[in-house]
Design a protein around this nucleic acid. Structure first.
Lengths: 275, 275
DNA sequence: AATCGAGCTTCCGGCCACCGGAAGGAGCCA
DNA sequence: TGGCTCCTTCCGGTGGCCGGAAGCTCGATT
C-alpha cells in the first residue's frame, strides 16, 4: 500500500486538508466529524473548522444523518483528471462494444506507482462478481490489467515490483519474481495477458495494452469471464481489437491501419490475426 | 470567467487550496503555475508552495510540459461521491441497454443548486453531437434532464429558478416563467420531459426521473437523438422503463413491480428507429 | 552574442491566522 | 438521572504561513 501515507500529511494546513480527504475511501464513504478527526489524526475542533470550510465549498457534503460524504463539486474537479475523463471519453465506445459482445465485465485501468487504478468498469449484473471497482486499486502483479501495465512500465518500476514481496490473492496468484518476469516477457511477446484464477478462483481475465500518441502504454483494458469453461482464444482477438481501437482513438501511430472502416471493432466473423 | 472567484476563497489556507482547484475546469484542464496563481488570485510564491504540496500528495500532477493537471488521486477521492459512484454503478446496466438500443446519446444527471451536473454519458461517436460532457453543468430549464430534475425539485428551488432570468441557448429554449411552469406540470403528469431543439436545434431529448429509496427524485436520465425525423413516442417507453429499472435498483418502493423478470428493460422487439 | 521576458524556484523575517483545550449543548440509552 | 458520544463555539498564545526579492532556466528577438 502507498507507504508514507498516514505519517505524512505534515503539520501544514494543506496537509491536514488532504488528510481529511484521505479519511474517505472504499468502505468509508460516509464519516462522522469525529470519525474524520480520528482518521486524520486531528483534534476535533480543528477537524470541525476545516471540514466546515470544505463542506461550504462543496468538497464535502453533509447528509441528513449528519455524516459527511465526498461532495459533487470535488467529483467534478476530479473528473478533469486527464487519465480519467480524456481516456474514458475515447475508450467508452470500444468498451461498450466489448461489453455488448461478452455481456460480462469490461475494465479499463491505468498505472499509479505499483498499483493499477480502475478508471472504468462495465459489469453485467449477472456476470461473475468482480473484486475491483471504479476508483479502486489492485496490485500490479495479480491482475490481468496490472500485468499488462507492468509489462510495459519503465524498467525501474518493474524491478521495484519484482523486488518487493508479492501478496497472493489466491493460491494461483503469481508471487515468484522469476515466474512473474517470465510472464511479463510473454505478455510483451503476445500483446495480451491471460490471468486465470489469480484474483479469485472463479474468474479469468484477458487484458491488452492501450497506447497513447507517443506509443507509450497509457492504459490497459480487460474482459473478465467465469473461469469455468472459458475459452480465452475466443476472447483474445476481441480484446486486442478493442485495445487497438482505443489506441487509434488516442492517436497512437502504430494503431493506424485499416482505412477507417466501421466503428465497431467487433465485426462478427473477422479475426485480426493477420496474413 | 468564473466571476466572484478570486474575491471569495477567503484568506484562509483551505480557501486558497480550494481556489487552486477551482482554477481548473472544462477548457482549463492543464495550467502553468503562473496560470494557477493568476486564476486563483495568489502571489506566485504562495501558489508555488501550495501547488507543490498538492502535487506531492497526488491531487495535482505535473506533466512533462511543466503544466499541472488534476491528479489521479483526487479523481479517486472524487469517485467516492455517493451521487456519482453509487448511482452510476447501479444505473450503468440500464444505461447500457438504452445505449445499445438507440446507439445515440444516453445521459444521467443530478441536480446541484440551479444546475444539472452530468454524472454519466454514453455517446456513440457517430451520434448527434451533444453539448454536455461528464462532469459538466447546464441550466435546469433548458435541458430534458434538467426539466425533470426541476419538476421534482423542492418548491423553493422551482420558484427561484422561475424567478431568475433564463438564458436561451436556442430560439426554442423556454425562457418564459409561465411556459416553464406549465411544462413542469406536464412533466410531472407524464413522467417524462421531451425537449426539442432547446439546447441545439438539431437534437431532441427525452428524459425521465430516477427515484431513490425514499421516493425522492435523485437523478434523471435522457436519450438525445437527432431532431430530424425523430419519433419521441418510440423512445419514451424505453426511457421510462430504464428510469424505472434504475429506481428499482436503488430501492424505490414504487418501482417494485414485475415479478423479477429479465434484467433488460428493452425486449428485443422495441425498435426506436422508424420512419 | 547579448538582451529581454516569461515562468519557475528558493529564501527568510515579520506578523497574523491557525491551533486546540475547554466549556457547553443536543441526543441517545440504560 | 447519569453517562455516553457527538457536535459546536470561544479565545489567547504562537508557530506556520505569507509574499517581496533575488536568482535561475528557457526561448525568442535584436
Amino acid at each position: 500500500m502507498s507507504p508514507a501515507q498516514g505519517a505524512r500529511n505534515g503539520p501544514s494546513v494543506t496537509g491536514r486538508v488532504l488528510g481529511i480527504l484521505s479519511a474517505f475511501g472504499p468502505g468509508a464513504e460516509a464519516l462522522t466529524l469525529s470519525g474524520i478527526a480520528r482518521a486524520a489524526g486531528l483534534p476535533l475542533s480543528t477537524a470541525h473548522r476545516l471540514v466546515g470550510e470544505l463542506a461550504s465549498w462543496g468538497a464535502l457534503e453533509r447528509g441528513e444523518d449528519g455524516r459527511y460524504r465526498i461532495g459533487l463539486r470535488l467529483w467534478e474537479v476530479g473528473a478533469l483528471a486527464p487519465r480519467s475523463l480524456g481516456l474514458r471519453e475515447r475508450a467508452m465506445p470500444y468498451l461498450e462494444d466489448l461489453y455488448e459482445a461478452t455481456r460480462q465485465n469490461v475494465q479499463l485501468g491505468v498505472r499509479d506507482g505499483h498499483e493499477v487504478v480502475y478508471v472504468e468498469r462495465l459489469a453485467h449484473p449477472e456476470a461473475v462478481r468482480v473484486f475491483s471497482r471504479v476508483g479502486g486499486r489492485m496490485p500490479l502483479h495479480a491482475t490481468g490489467v496490472g500485468q499488462v501495465l507492468l509489462a510495459y512500465a519503465p524498467a525501474a518500476v518493474q524491478e521495484e515490483v519484482l523486488a518487493a514481496p508479492m501478496t497472493a490473492l489466491t493460491p494461483r496468484t503469481i508471487t515468484d519474481p522469476y515466474e512473474l518476469r517470465r510472464t511479463l516477457a510473454a505478455v510483451r511477446r503476445e500483446g495480451v495477458a491471460v490471468c486465470d484464477g489469480m484474483v479469485d478462483l472463479l474468474s479469468l481475465s484477458v487484458a491488452a495494452p492501450v497506447r497513447g500518441e507517443d506509443e507509450r502504454v497509457v492504459a490497459s483494458l480487460s474482459v473478465v469471464v467465469p473461469s469455468a469453461g472459458a475459452e480465452p482464444r475466443a476472447i483474445v482477438p476481441a480484446v486486442r481489437a478493442a485495445a487497438r481501437g482505443i489506441s487509434r482513438a488516442l492517436g497512437a501511430p502504430s494503431a493506424r491501419r485499416r482505412p477507417a472502416g466501421v466503428v465497431s471493432p467487433l465485426p462478427a466473423g473477422a479475426s485480426p490475426t493477420g496474413g
